[in-house]
Amino acid sequence: MTKEEVIEVIKRNIVDNLDDVEEGNIDPQKSMKDYGANSLDMIEVVSTSMRELNIKIPRAELADIANIDQLADKFMEYVDK
């Protein structure tokens, strides 16, 4: 799986969980907060994305992630392991 495919999974889950966000308008260099996500929204997007990608990442490893691109990088460390 490529990083672009991982980003598409994250984008799809952002669209599914946030109002008034279109997938084509999501910039991976921005954070989910930039699109109006609160902490519960972010947990749902991350959890749903991890289930879809069939990965499990300790929450502590996600604490310092600042944007969608960094989240995809972290997911890539666990994809296909």
Rank of each mutant, 00 (worst) to 15 (best):
T2I: 06
T2Q: 14
K3S: 00
E4S: 11
E5V: 04
V6Q: 09
V6G: 10
V6L: 11
I7E: 08
I7N: 01
I7T: 02
E8C: 00
V9D: 08
I10F: 12
I10M: 03
K11Q: 11
R12P: 01
R12T: 03
R12Y: 15
N13L: 07
I14W: 12
V15I: 06
V15M: 14
D16T: 10
N17S: 14
N17P: 05
L18R: 12
L18Q: 11
V21E: 03
E23W: 07
G24S: 09
G24I: 07
N25V: 00
N25M: 08
N25D: 13
N25I: 01
I26M: 04
I26Q: 01
I26W: 01
D27R: 09
D27W: 13
P28V: 01
P28D: 09
Q29I: 00
K30L: 10
K30E: 06
K30W: 04
S31M: 05
M32T: 05
K33M: 06
D34R: 14
D34W: 15
G36M: 14
G36T: 04
G36V: 04
A37N: 02
N38K: 11
N38C: 06
N38G: 01
S39K: 07
D41V: 08
M42W: 03
E44C: 04
E44W: 12
V46L: 10
V46Y: 10
V46C: 09
T48L: 09
M50C: 15
M50V: 11
R51P: 10
R51G: 14
E52P: 00
E52F: 04
N54Q: 15
K56I: 07
K56S: 14
K56C: 02
I57C: 06
R59G: 00
A60Y: 06
A60D: 05
E61Y: 10
E61Q: 11
E61F: 10
L62Q: 05
A63N: 11
A63F: 15
A63Q: 15
I65S: 13
I65N: 07
A66W: 04
A66V: 04
N67G: 09
I68F: 09
I68P: 05
D69Q: 02
D69I: 01
Q70I: 12
L71G: 10
L71V: 06
A72P: 00
A72H: 03
A72N: 03
D73S: 15
D73N: 13
F75K: 13
M76S: 02
M76W: 06
M76N: 03
E77S: 05
Y78R: 09
V79Y: 02
V79T: 05
D80I: 00
K81C: 08
